[in-house]
Nucleic acid binder design. Structure first.
Lengths: 225, 225
DNA sequence: TCGGGCTGTTACCACCATATAACCCTTCGC
DNA sequence: GCGAAGGGTTATATGGTGGTAACAGCCCGA
């Protein structure tokens, strides 16, 4: 399952800040791009389409607020997260920043750890609205649309079949005991015959046309391409 | 589609803070409920189902962090916005707060104006349901004029029918559970029979004359051309 | 080689979710 | 007050879903 790394663009004219933030965000698994002034920030934002933009308010060329406004004006950046970063702890600027469409406003000096938590908090909320789309090789499972894609072909699975496949595909390679599968998909109180799972597995294999579910005899099933 | 006021619960043991925040939030059009300790906060949260909960960290009975954890443990509050409010400007607490699932962390003393902007910023990201004209292929949905166009033909839908179609069309392809539809179109407190949705869907399909709503059995409906 | 344990496969069918039509109550314009 | 439209319920039809049974095949140990 691919969870592509979140892309973050940091724009600040102080190299130290850039360095510290980049170091911390990278460690946390984010992909980091940096810019040292407003114009460069705009340029790199366009090219990299980051998920989060961190803007210093006081920057050469263009201020963070200006950059923010320009970004928000473009449809591609309507949804992008934006955090302002500033030494200026002045109310007016802060309010203006937030009203321009920023999602957070952090005052320097910043504690890297606190900053990280804030970033994570923002992404956490964003995540929920997003679908948890699984992509394994050329197989795509989209629970939001209830669609399976093998290559370009769209395949419709029934509810139970979908849930079963999704469960297995969540942890590729991991073997699920028949009991686990029953609990997860059917619920721990429902009692069904022993052949039920096999039949569903078969239907999935049949509909997908590819062999992605492996039987582990005497144990259970696992997803594998 | 309901545009009822956002409900906010404020929990703080200092009456002054409660008063100031309540005053400011009310002015901004929010519906405000207050609590003066942790237990009362939990109680009122359950009863009022607020969209945003503001928690003082230091409170009698239960701390803000405890309340937050208890709330987040309940499915009904998984999505609720939570802001911590505190005089304690200690890193550890702040990080813990954010990692508990809070969305923001504001240190006292607070400027009411800045605080308001932060609240607004949170809500802004949450509701991206701006009324805009949708155009999907040769189908146009104009929520301002309440008009549907299929090709050149104008079609009049009833209010509920329109709202239902608009909801689905906002995210083409995305499957909406019957529950989601009920919440969004009818409101979470209204109780209607199970067949109601089907009937409205049917009317829409009939009036539009084109097949743009797909049934996903056991799950819900999705818009698709 | 035989038999038991386990899984694959097929056919069958009950039941549940949805489709559909008919009906009723309320609201609103005239 | 009346008719029309909105919006909800109920009853019945229908098809897909998903469970079961029955049997075939395979692997492995005795």
């Amino acid at each position: 399952m691919e969870t592509k790394p979140r892309k973050v663009l940091i724009a600040d004219d102080e190299p130290d800040i850039l360095e510290i933030l980049k170091y911390n965000l990278s460690n946390e698994g984010y992909e980091v791009v940096t810019a040292k002034d407003g114009d460069e920030a705009l340029e790199k934002a366009r090219r990299n389409q980051p998920d989060l933009v961190i803007l210093d308010v006081m920057m050469p060329k263009k201020t963070g607020v200006e950059v923010c406004q320009l970004l928000r004006a473009q449809p591609a950046f309507k949804e992008t997260l934006i955090i302002f970063l500033t030494a200026v702890n002045d109310e007016g600027t802060q309010i203006k920043g937030l009203e321009t469409g920023a999602d957070d406003y952090v005052s320097k000096p910043i504690s890297p750890k606190v900053f990280l938590s804030r970033v994570n908090a923002l992404f956490r909320r964003l995540n929920k609205t997003e679908a948890r789309i699984l992509t394994i090789d050329h197989l795509t499972i989209d629970p939001e649309r209830f669609i399976i894609k093998v290559g370009e072909a769209e395949i419709i699975l029934a509810k139970k079949e979908f849930e079963l496949l999704y469960l297995l595909a969540l942890k590729p390679g991991r073997v699920f005991l028949r009991n686990e599968i029953l609990n997860q998909v059917w619920g721990n109180d429902v009692i069904v015959g022993d052949r039920t799972i096999d039949v569903h597995i078969r239907k999935i294999r049949q509909k997908l046309g590819i062999d992605c579910i492996t039987t582990v005899k005497g144990v259970g099933y696992k997803f594998e391409l």
